[in-house]
Amino acid sequence: MDQHSLGASFANRARPASRFGANISFLDLVQGIGLLAVILLGCLVMTVASPVFATTRNLENVLQSATIIAVVAIGQTFVILVAGIDLSVASVLVLSSVLSVGLVEFNGWSPGLAILAALGTGALFGLANGLAVTKLRIPALIATLATMSIGRGLAYIFSGGQNIAPVPDIFVDLQDARILGVPAVIVLTLALAAIAQFVLSRTRFGRSVYATGGNALAARLAGIRTDRVIIATYVISGLMAGIAGLLITARFEAGAATAAQGMELAVIAAVVIGGVSLFGGEGNMGGMLLGVLLLGLVQNAVNLLDVPPNYDSVVSGLVIAAAAALDVYRRSYLEAGLRRRVIAAKEAKAEKPK
């Protein structure tokens, strides 16, 4: 058996559960419906508990706040799909934010050039993470923890530890813009998620991402350049964090040097709640968006119910732990059981006399 045939054999055995069979797709559908049901139930409870919750202003505020986490989560989804992790996203976000304003305010750059520099910086951080993980073989947790510290430190050095204002008019216009009555930042976020889902589901690169996360060895034997795939996912993550930095600049109308403390954990929680497996190879953007929305509603509920800030951290930690436990349970028990049923059904069909 040649190398590619061997790789294909391994790949068939280790394909992601979301592609294993109709029953697994049904499980993904049930999970999505379950998330949606929890969101609707939570909205109903909060409508009764707080007269402010169901107002247009509050719901729009929830969605606009969620857009920032959602854009970062798009990039994080790519990384987690290849069984990686990116802890540097919040630091890259604030560095992008202060550069997009500070390069104009302090250095006289044009707003367009400053924005390109901010996005390029995000992509460079992603490239550094990808190279550290693939070429230096540094564990992703350690590599991105290092760039997290570097990015936040550079943001503080450049800004002097202070938010930078005023912002160029382009950021004010972005925050105020509406498309068919919907805030433009929400439309932009949905467009980015749609593009990302198209890439994952309809392109060769997307199939390589799932294959690499499902079984990197099998993917390599099948001819996929897994190192390049992993590097590309980290670059995407850095770029998405850079875009989120521009969105948070528009929202706060300042280069937000002190923002996004702990956001990397919220992003990971939202992605996992949305059904993207921490083990890699499973998940999609639709589920991720539901996870982001659920987490945004939880944070909004905490604020509206006047829960003390310290308890807010406890709630966030419990949500993260529950999401990770659910992922392990789903992968270890539910999907394994469904696989056995699918295999048993195929064997029974094969043995059935014609």
Rank of each mutant, 00 (worst) to 15 (best):
L44H: 13
A146K: 06
A211G: 07
H4W: 05
A216L: 08
T258S: 05
A73G: 07
L87R: 00
R339C: 04
T67R: 12
I69W: 01
A17Q: 09
T56Y: 10
R339D: 08
A260L: 15
G160D: 13
N215D: 03
V98G: 07
I236P: 11
A194Q: 03
A193L: 08
T134Y: 05
A118K: 11
L326T: 03
L27R: 06
I320E: 00
L95T: 11
F125W: 05
L338M: 04
G242M: 15
G275N: 06
Q162T: 14
S88Y: 11
A322V: 06
V229F: 00
A211Q: 05
V235S: 04
A269I: 07
F252N: 06
G161L: 10
E253V: 15
L81Q: 08
D176L: 11
V45D: 12
A8Q: 13
L294C: 03
A219Y: 02
F198I: 14
D312A: 14
L297E: 07
Q76I: 12
L35V: 11
F53M: 03
L217N: 06
D28E: 12
S159Q: 09
L154N: 13
G122W: 11
A194G: 05
I273C: 14
I186L: 07
A222K: 01
G160V: 14
A132M: 15
L239I: 03
L103T: 08
I320S: 03
A241S: 12
N12D: 10
L93E: 13
M288N: 12
M1W: 11
N58D: 00
V82Q: 00
